[in-house]
């Protein structure tokens, strides 16, 4: 099977496809090896038929089979499972037995069930606040790190600031509770020393502030990486040019560094906009108990609480489906906008 490669003929050198791979690689098929110009399709290709290639590659396909099965089973089958959004599913029925009910399950969305509207409102508010408050932090931090003159200090700072990214949300929430909770480290210290107390844990009014600060604590440091990478590619002569023209470090920042990272900022901002319907699910789920659903219910937790806990399978699947569709449209739209800005987006143009 492997002998179909013509021996003795060096294969054409295959440059790595730029941008990985999105739509397949441009390298020529080995079927054409041995032709005078392997890169071009010759007018009379001595190609193998599909069946011959299938037989030749059967072992190769067998290797890929486990992965393909997992992808099909755990990504595509659940996609089909979304039919229960149009059915009256009950746990004692199979999905196929459940009766069709058309768009009845979507009445939660169309008629505006108060709990659903509350979840939608909270989701959008949290997303908006996180875009406004969280988004600029890594940029500022990256500029600060970049401005450090000592390489060693910069490296140590990065090592410390990246660490929280790798902590699970359970750990982050646990840390916040035990540091800032009512009986936590800070408040016990503050009580005995007459300092003002921090009442942010389990407080519905400050829930937004709490989850925002948790997101900043966890991911602000990690978020600097992409900006630092963009800054590191700036041509140093540009800085010299500013200096020659009499500009100081602020001028260098304003006229060189910031314009250099502007594409990355725009790209990440657009992608963030495409993600407005998803806010930290595990993070919020973990902290709903003491805070109450009014302040903390978001779309994802609504699907869980209303569907899996409350047993409203069809209706919550409908909410999940609409959320998924809008999310996909937003991501695709965001990519479209990114392309309009001349950026690459999540994927290249096909």
């Amino acid at each position: 099977m492997a002998s179909s490669v013509v021996p003795g003929q060096p294969a054409p050198s295959r440059p790595a496809p730029p941008g990985g791979t999105a739509a397949g690689d441009p390298s020529p098929d080995p079927d054409t090896i041995g032709k005078p110009r392997p890169g071009r399709r010759s007018p009379t290709p001595r190609r193998l038929s599909g069946w011959q290639r299938l037989v030749r590659d059967r072992f190769l396909l067998l290797l890929g089979l486990p992965g393909v099965v997992v992808v099909l089973l755990f990504q595509y089958v659940p996609l089909l499972g979304n039919v229960i959004a149009f059915k009256d599913y009950q746990p004692y029925l199979t999905i196929w037995e459940a009766p069709w009910v058309g768009f009845d399950n979507f009445s939660v969305i169309v008629n505006g069930d108060p709990a659903f509207l509350n979840a939608l409102k909270n989701t959008l508010v949290i997303s908006l606040v996180q875009i406004v408050v969280v988004f600029p932090v890594p940029i500022a931090l990256a500029l600060l790190l970049n401005s450090l003159l000592s390489e060693r200090l910069k490296r140590i700072s990065q090592s410390i600031l990246y660490l929280p990214h790798f902590m699970s949300w359970v750990i982050v929430v646990a840390l916040f509770q035990h540091m800032l909770g009512n009986a936590g480290l800070y408040n016990t210290f503050a009580r005995t020393h007459g300092l003002p107390l921090v009442e942010i844990i389990g407080n519905p009014d400050l829930f937004l502030a709490l989850i925002t600060s948790q997101v900043i604590w966890k991911d602000a440091g990690w978020g600097t990486i992409i900006f630092l990478a963009a800054i590191s590619r700036v041509d140093l002569q540009l800085y010299e040019a500013v200096a020659v023209d009499g500009g100081g470090r602020l001028r260098q920042l304003w006229h060189v560094t910031l314009p250099a990272i502007r594409p990355v900022i725009i790209l990440l901002f657009i992608l963030k906009l495409g993600d407005v319907l998803s806010v930290g699910f595990e993070q919020i789920f973990l902290q709903q108990g003491p805070v109450g659903l009014d302040a903390s219910e978001v779309l994802d937790t609504y699907v869980y609480n209303y569907g899996i806990v409350g047993g409203n399978w069809g209706a919550s699947a409908a909410v999940g489906l609409v959320k998924g569709l809008i999310g996909a449209i937003l991501v695709l739209g965001a990519n479209k906008v990114a392309h309009l800005f001349g950026e690459r987006g999540l994927y290249a143009k096909w």
Partner: peptide, 14 residues
């Protein structure tokens, strides 16, 4: 599969 996520309920039922 990078573009979508089937959602919590269908995953659970699967």
């Amino acid at each position: 599969t990078m573009l979508f996520n089937a959602g919590m309920i269908p995953n659970y039922l699967l």
